[in-house]
Amino acid sequence: MANPEVLAELKKIPWFGTLSPEHLEKLAGITTLRPVKAGETLFKEGDRQDYVYIVLEGRVALEIFVPHRGKVRIYTCEQHDVFGWSSVTPLVRQRTAGATAVLNSRVACMDAEKLRQICDEDRDLGYLVMRRLANVVASRLMVTRLQLIDMFANPEEKNA
């Protein structure tokens, strides 16, 4: 039986509203809620990938450490954004970016190992989860492309 508080929080996330009660219950059963204070680090680059996160409230920054530049903030996750998604498909078995709360936040933490198991056992749910994650990856790719283009740069600077 899933924690009712977790279940209630997941139901507020639009995507979870499309799941059957059974599927929702399964995902809630592997999820915990965690408050994070502004400035608190959820994970660092190189850490083991153990959870997939969803922002319930606040803002969480993804940062990469660049030698001679320090931490570069590459993206901020807003309410209902998913981050740490690569732990579900662990090609690289360690975090490739760090995550730090920018504002006081609350996140849902989904056990990545158990999520993989559930997806393997219940292929219908597995398809829905992977489709959702594909959307997340696609949107991140779109952001990365637009950032890469550096669209706000002075045209002369771009052509230099």
Binding site: A38, A61, I74, T76, V102, L103, M142, V143, L146, Q147
Partner: peptide, 23 residues
């Protein structure tokens, strides 16, 4: 407001304008 590149002192959004539609 969102910026393409933030620093550690920026507590606003880092991302791109069209992403707003997702949130």
């Amino acid at each position: 407001i969102s910026v393409d590149r933030g620093d550690e002192n920026w507590d606003g959004r880092v991302g791109v304008v069209p992403m707003w539609f997702y949130n």
